[in-house]
Design a protein around this nucleic acid. Structure first.
Lengths: 226, 226
DNA sequence: AGTGTTTAACCTAAATTAACCTTAAATCAA
DNA sequence: TTGATTTAAGGTTAATTTAGGTTAAACACT
């Protein structure tokens, strides 16, 4: 199932670009251009995460956030703020499941923050759901399944372990040795070859989404860019 | 490496339970029972995160936090407050890398907050300076890519490290030894030759933009004119 | 028999080492 | 004190080594 984003933005040109860009990464985007519409849209679509411009007509992003939080205290929210916004105001909201990005921002940055926040909230529910979002894929650790919109791929135990370790360390370097120790318990020659084999498999599974890359850092480990 | 927590708590019974509980979750805990000792312990152990009871003998948690922040403005701090504490005071500190928890609290809650704060601050560090502009080039450190308008060149780990060091010191002198120590960890003869090899490569990559020059200062180091 | 996992053989690319070349600085000769 | 000579630092290119990747076959569990 796609991750739903409520996106509140009143600049039509920027809004269009960001919306399409997010959709091309596999997100479902509900966009509103007015603060008043935000709460209604929230109730109708129950998004997984909100991306709110702070400056909105009729009701600003913070006010909207406060109202949404009353309905769902745990929902992650990303604020988009102009350079001129005072820090204090912004910082007050920068806690728990919140984050904020200064305009102008790169799509890269927005997507990383969204993924990070989704991941954080999912980690809280770890025992319950065991679902990981990776690009346009979803991994159900308890079911050993990898889904890509329509398709479902069964994962083996090793494959699932490896995906879990990589996604826990997304956008940072994991050492080869740590992976070997965590999965096989020792980093002997054969297990090392073995890890190579599984890396090849995962790269094959994730190849449909070009925003994902498992990069090798030779002599060090891997960097899972998400 | 274990995450280190500085834990300031004067109630011995509660302190013991929380300390052991955190340790059983894989944290390393340095515990102090007096506000005065907090700063010393901070300096000695350089913890990754602080958990401070607000009511402490000799120096309260807020005062201690302020002093620690002077040494490290980015360190995340969780305050533990009794029910009676006024909200206003607490809220003033609820910003940036701070969070607070009302006593009595569950261990679950404490651990979730600690993990969230650690995650947030770590993510910030990975996102901040990932794109470097150098002349007409852009370097995406997280993707290990160097782009020049149309063309994209994949960088190896060593190449990226070297570009990062040079660009961090653009228009000033970096010593050869510093580079060697930072990348290879020692400045032996062979690594020194090695550095020469990578310098040749970088000069080749940057040769399209004549405004850029990696100048050698013999016997000293390099000067990256940008 | 049919997965999942390990071993193996062969391949590719990055990092290191090596050999030889260039140049700046230091020394020396007039 | 200037230009020639020496010397050491660094540059260049290529060969070698090593880490890791790919594919397929062997093995081990149900």
């Amino acid at each position: 199932m796609k991750t739903k984003i409520l996106y509140a933005e009143d600049e039509p040109f920027l809004g269009k670009i960001v919306k399409e860009s997010l959709e091309s990464r596999g997100f479902e985007v509900i966009m509103v251009t007015d603060g008043k519409d935000g709460l209604v849209a929230y109730g109708q679509h129950k998004p997984d995460i909100c991306v709110l411009d702070v400056m909105l007509p009729n009701k600003d992003g913070f006010k909207l956030a406060t109202e949404i939080r009353q309905l769902n205290p745990a929902i992650p929210i990303v604020f988009l703020t102009a350079k001129t916004q005072t820090d204090d105001l912004v910082k007050g909201f920068q806690s728990g499941g919140n984050d904020y990005i200064r305009k102008p921002f790169s799509m890269e940055e927005l997507i990383i923050r969204i993924n990070n926040l989704l991941n954080l909230t999912q980690q809280k529910n770890t025992n319950v759901a065991n679902v990981i979002n990776i690009g346009k894929y979803e991994v159900f650790l308890n079911k050993y399944e990898l889904t890509n919109q329509n398709k479902t791929k069964k994962l083996s135990h090793r494959e699932a372990e490896l995906i879990k370790i990589l996604s826990e360390n997304r956008n940072s370097i994991v050492s080869r040795k740590d992976i070997l120790m965590q999965i096989w318990g020792d980093d002997s020659y054969f297990n090392s070859r073995n890890l190579d084999v599984y890396m090849t498999k995962l790269r094959e599974y994730f190849k449909d989404d070009p925003s994902l890359e498992i990069m090798t850092i030779k002599g060090v480990g891997y960097f899972f860019r998400v």
